Computed example of a mutant assay.
Amino acid sequence: MRFAGGVKALWPLALSLLTVGGAAQARDSLGVFEAWGAFRDPAPAPSGGGPRCYAIAMPVAAKSEGFAAVGSWPRQRVRGQVHFRLSRMRMGDAAVILNVGDRRFTLVAGQVDAWAPDARADAAIVAAMRSATSMSVQTRDARGRGFADTYMLRGAATAIDAAALGCARIR
């Protein structure tokens, strides 16, 4: 299955994610691998975080600005950090559960974002992503209705590797 639109479909998502102060920064496409893209933002972030590289995908039912990403910020010594933008605002106390194949992870979440609780969980999630065919993030929206954002994982491992290589020499 090839992602419809390839780089053209993922590029607006990548631009919207990394817009700072209303002005988009330059990005390098590292490739599109099935439903996943890999990008590098070579310019230092205003917060001093330095360059960053990430693999990113939109949910299967992409009717929102939801996404899944695995990023690296080499100058901050962060590699393989998992991040989800939920497709709906989350109910304040609702748990956010990630199912990857037969593995289940509880995420830490804000109103519309969710992350692994620590670097060890990031590594476990990425390892699970490499061997599964899909993953879903489940929670309840602000009205109390359950929902799930589902992602196909074909191409995820290659995109994650491409993003890691894109920032491998940056320190």
Rank of each mutant, 00 (worst) to 15 (best):
F33K: 02
E34I: 07
A35R: 13
G37A: 14
F39G: 01
F39N: 00
F39H: 00
R40M: 08
P42W: 11
A45G: 07
S47C: 13
G50T: 06
G50F: 05
G50P: 09
R52K: 11
R52E: 12
R52D: 10
Y54M: 11
Y54A: 11
A57H: 08
V60E: 14
A61P: 11
A61Q: 14
A61K: 10
A62D: 12
A62V: 01
K63R: 11
S64W: 06
G66C: 08
A68R: 02
A69L: 05
A69R: 00
V70T: 03
S72Y: 04
R75H: 13
Q76F: 06
Q76M: 15
R77A: 07
R79W: 07
R79Y: 11
R79V: 11
G80E: 08
Q81I: 01
V82Q: 00
V82H: 00
F84K: 02
R85N: 08
R85V: 09
L86Y: 01
L86I: 01
L86F: 00
S87L: 10
S87M: 06
R88A: 13
R90S: 12
R90T: 04
G92N: 13
A94Q: 09
A94V: 03
I97K: 02
N99P: 08
G101S: 10
G101Q: 09
R103W: 10
R103T: 07
F105I: 01
V108S: 09
A109I: 08
Q111A: 15
Q111K: 14
V112E: 15
D113P: 10
W115D: 09
W115P: 13
D118G: 03
A119H: 06
A119K: 03
A119N: 07
D122L: 08
V126A: 00
V126S: 00
A127T: 08
A127P: 08
A127C: 12
M129S: 06
R130W: 02
R130T: 10
V137W: 05
T139P: 15
T139R: 15
R140D: 10
R143P: 02
G144M: 11
R145G: 12
R145I: 09
R145Q: 09
G146T: 04
F147Y: 05
D149V: 02
D149K: 05
T150W: 01
Y151A: 07
Y151S: 03
Y151E: 02
M152D: 15
L153E: 03
